[in-house]
Write a protein that binds this DNA or RNA. Sequence first.
DNA 1: AAACTTAGTGTAAAAATTACACTTTGAAAA
DNA 2: TTTTCAAAGTGTAATTTTTACACTAAGTTT
Lengths: 248, 248
Amino acid sequence: MAKKTPTLSNPNVSVDCVVFGFDGSDLKVLLVERYRRDNLDFQDDTLVLPGDLINNNEDLNEAASRILYDLTGLTKIFLQQIGAFGSPKRLSKPKDIAWLEAVRMNPEARVITIGYYALINIKNYKVRPSSFAKHVVWRGYDEVGELGFDHNDILEKAIHDLRGQLYREPIGFELLPNQFSLHQLYSLYNEIMGGGIDRRNFRRRILKTGFLKETEEYQEGVPHKPARLYTLIPEEFEHASKNNFKFY
Amino acid sequence: MAKKTPTLSNPNVSVDCVVFGFDGSDLKVLLVERYRRDNLDFQDDTLVLPGDLINNNEDLNEAASRILYDLTGLTKIFLQQIGAFGSPKRLSKPKDIAWLEAVRMNPEARVITIGYYALINIKNYKVRPSSFAKHVVWRGYDEVGELGFDHNDILEKAIHDLRGQLYREPIGFELLPNQFSLHQLYSLYNEIMGGGIDRRNFRRRILKTGFLKETEEYQEGVPHKPARLYTLIPEEFEHASKNNFKFY
DNA sequence: AAACTTAGTGTAAAAATTACACTTTGAAAA
DNA sequence: TTTTCAAAGTGTAATTTTTACACTAAGTTT
């Protein structure tokens, strides 16, 4: 049996990323059409989370960063590990098997995957002229249908952890532009949490935390009273992130 | 190169368990002396968390359960995954390398490990007459020194997650006998949280949750007023576990 | 019988949370 | 230029939750 050229990638461990974006009103997830590395025309029109086998010399977070860089061209993305998914049956749907056989060197290998979620500002994202590019799609969180592999499980865990973390750490700003209105921030929280947050109380609370600074800038081009824009004060933000701070 | 007999275990993925126990006043962790599977006299007197490579046909939780069963003889242990640890350098201390070379089929293999924590009632645990037995030791959480591999990182993440979970889910009863006094429960919470909980307020709050039922039993053999014993009401407990309940 | 140890109970003050409605501002339409 | 529209922005009272804190009760040991 001719030995294939050695690869750096580890056949047993992959990383999959749930990339959340926010367009001002809806929480979105970045999905890719399953494709074939050496034949971009091959596809089985199944949507999956972006992911890849890890390389043997690379840390798990590095692998996730690499995947996100390939996908978006962005570096320094907010990343959070959500755990390992390792059911022996996680790759056993017929279409999944067919895809693995078409693409992987060891299609029968046991693969456990490490899930991550990432938060990115959707405006910073541009389709890259990379191999991924034409297969990428944003989907509203509520419109994500059945994904390949066990990726619906990973997505579910991601939203669960995101919600939990949003409650007690001041994350979520990664999803917004550098300057944002309180309404944008409110919409973000309200959307991720599934609604029900009082607008006025939210405003009071978030200002009381002290990690927002008002700027002298205002919204432009809106057909109503323009809202003041705010920025994050990084030091206060960091401080609040420790000391098991509870925001909401 | 002669091929070794095929093994079921996957060379790239392991599971390590932080086993917490409670003796009534101190939080303890179960550690094992690093040993050699085929030569129990071999040991390098380094303490590590109990763990093992996973088998290819086994789920991650199953692997953790298997390890805990081998170690304690207990089944149905409360288990919580805390995530994957995958630094390429995690097995690179000289002593770690020496041990791997003595024990593993592929000592140079990249191994990522999935961490778990487990809660067990220390009274139910008896040293098993197994290969593990003579290498097992309970250590007070505060007295755990330097462990092999990256196991101090895993321990740290475990206590962090345990504390977080204790705040918002009614776990921790696994560490106590079936019937327990409120003082025992209080001590447990106070110890895990690192102190500072008001005894009277704790009592009021935990009773208000409604998942404790008072029994007609009392402590015996204590040199003071005996405390009433309580049990958990499983249904209420389950109900509270969902609905992102916040206890403390 | 006295001393000791832990069990068990209540309340008042402070802080946090909730619910809720009207005025302001700028752009667009009439 | 006036009117309309849409979102920005602001305050308070009632309720609930949290906190801090000290004494009495009951059983065992001396």
